[in-house]
């Protein structure tokens, strides 16, 4: 198993080198002709107004909170799913308890309007 993960690590290193090689080749081939007009942000030809990094309302931070709760719970569900066949009735009853907690949470978020895009 250690060797398998070692292989994955090796793949990750090569995956880091590959874009560098591609960019390096392009670096040798491409022309260089910088200009002020070229480096302006492209906003459909209209000059940009104000700065880009302003504060604006990210309307999905409630989704993000619900997401964190659900994602953590699915991690537990995977462990349970693997042993589902071996554990029999215990896992079966536990499924209803765990999933109903999830569903109550989802229903609460839904009712509170956390799932509405505003």
């Amino acid at each position: 198993m250690l060797q398998e993960f070692g292989n994955v690590g090796l793949l990750l290193i090569v995956a880091l080198v590959f874009p560098l090689l591609a960019l390096g080749t392009a670096f040798l081939l491409r022309p260089r002709d910088p200009g002020v007009e070229k480096s302006l942000p492209y906003e459909c030809g209209v000059d940009t107004v104000g700065t880009t990094w302003v504060q604006f309302r990210a309307s999905y931070f409630l989704y993000a909170l619900v997401f964190v709760a659900f994602d953590v719970e699915t991690v537990f569900l995977y462990l349970w799913a693997i042993k589902f066949q071996e554990l029999g009735t215990f896992a079966f009853v536990e499924m209803f308890i765990f999933l109903s907690i999830l569903l109550v949470g989802l229903g609460y978020a839904w009712k509170k309007g956390a799932l509405e895009w505003k």
Binding site: P19, L23, A26, P34, L40
Partner: peptide
């Protein structure tokens, strides 16, 4: 064609993040 195109970084960009993102 894509390899032989000029590399243009927008003015005022966050340089390192901009370079790292595609990699």
């Amino acid at each position: 064609k894509l390899m032989s195109k000029e590399d243009i970084m927008p003015a005022g960009a966050d340089k390192w993040m901009w370079i790292l993102a595609p990699m």
